[in-house]
Amino acid sequence: MPTIDYYFATLSPYCYLAGTRLEEVAAKHGATINYKPFDIIAAFGRTGGTAPADRHPARIEYRAQELPRQAKKLGMPFNLKPAHWPTNGAPAAYAFIAAQEAGGGDLGALAHAITRACWAEQKDIAEDAVIKACLREAGFDPALADSGLLVGAETYARNLEEAVEAGAFGAPFYVVGSERFWGQDRIEDVDLHLQGKL
């Protein structure tokens, strides 16, 4: 059974645009997804990237065109400048890790609910109420937002180290064996790879 290591960031608009397409590809191939939420801003600093606010104007302008284009192409609601961004993505990541440990719900739906809350619903994913609503929507106990903070912090930090070691420098980032795929627009390539065509 193939395994996909999925490095994602709760604050990433591109992870939001990925929707649940990776989960559909994994189901098609009987693949397991290892969800690894990590600190994307710290990863930029470790892998030669630049935080969005510090990028050259040309890159900022391109991002401002490309994100709405991709959202339109995918038929997804999208706010280029959400009311609560940047915010602290760690609490949502810790809750995700707690849900991962507890089991019983849909992790793909949870990842999408968290990113959608930020990029389509104008909600602050650092707020307890927002995180609990996302947990509930994905079939998890909302109380998980209040538990496992130490384990969440440790796993979050470890995921960053694993991401850097695996060669992940952005999000979403998918690793299948020795093959690496960067970006929501590469999910089709993950599918083709699992078919043995790439």
Rank of each mutant, 00 (worst) to 15 (best):
P2V: 06
D5Q: 04
Y7E: 04
T10Y: 11
L17K: 10
T20M: 11
L22C: 02
G30A: 01
N34V: 14
N34Q: 12
I40D: 05
I41S: 03
A42M: 10
A43Q: 08
F44R: 02
G45Q: 08
R46F: 12
T47P: 07
T47H: 06
T47A: 11
D54C: 01
H56A: 11
H56V: 02
H56L: 05
R59K: 09
A64R: 12
L67N: 13
R69M: 11
N79H: 15
N79D: 15
L80F: 12
K81S: 13
P82W: 13
P82L: 12
A83I: 01
H84D: 07
P86E: 11
P91E: 07
A92G: 07
A93E: 06
Y94G: 02
F96I: 07
I97W: 10
A98Y: 07
A99T: 04
G104R: 12
G105N: 11
L107A: 02
G108A: 12
G108L: 10
A109S: 14
A111E: 10
H112Q: 13
A120N: 09
Q122E: 14
Q122D: 14
I125W: 08
A129I: 00
A129E: 14
I131W: 00
A133L: 07
C134H: 10
L135T: 06
F140H: 03
F140A: 06
P142Y: 15
A145E: 09
S147M: 10
S147P: 01
G148F: 11
L150F: 10
E154C: 00
A157R: 15
R158H: 04
A163F: 13
A166W: 01
F169Q: 08
F173G: 01
Y174M: 15
S178K: 15
S178E: 15
F181M: 05
W182Q: 03
R186D: 04
E188A: 11
V190G: 02
D191E: 10
L192T: 06
Q195P: 00
L198E: 04
